[in-house]
Design a protein around this nucleic acid. Sequence first.
DNA 1: TGATTATATAATGCACACATTACATATAGA
DNA 2: TCTATATGTAATGTGTGCATTATATAATCA
Lengths: 67, 67
Amino acid sequence: MKLRIHEILKEKGKTKYWLYIQLGLSYQNFNNIVNNRTKGIKFENLKAICDILECTPNDLFEEYYKK
Amino acid sequence: MKLRIHEILKEKGKTKYWLYIQLGLSYQNFNNIVNNRTKGIKFENLKAICDILECTPNDLFEEYYKK
DNA sequence: TGATTATATAATGCACACATTACATATAGA
DNA sequence: TCTATATGTAATGTGTGCATTATATAATCA
């Protein structure tokens, strides 16, 4: 399961750094998530990412995203 | 984030035990996930649950489910 | 009566999400 | 020059997903 965070940020004209500040996660962990180096995620953080990016889990997951 | 696994299983007329067998997870962990006692999940298992239940992450998460 | 289905809890250990701290590079603006 | 933006990596420790093993109850079926 790959996360489309890069694409969504590009669509919104926002940077990773911006999302990092909004989220409040450690940058280390944040960077691993965004660059798809993690094998799972806390629901709390998944929800926060969706809230901030104004999207749903299906939009985030490459496998379920429908343009 | 609450998972709607109970509802989806009911709709499909399947039992938790059936899903447990399909998934191949330990029953302990499986039971915690299904009964919403976990704070996160591995992408691999999220994908497997969606595949078996023939649904998407948005269908699974109560916060994003639209009937 | 015994096996399978069905569901649940507890103890122990490993793998990994996540936090914290630190270090590093590069650009842009005050 | 100093600060903030922007991105990345490494080391160490805590919390927790998940596996394994065990125990328990109850219904259904051979």
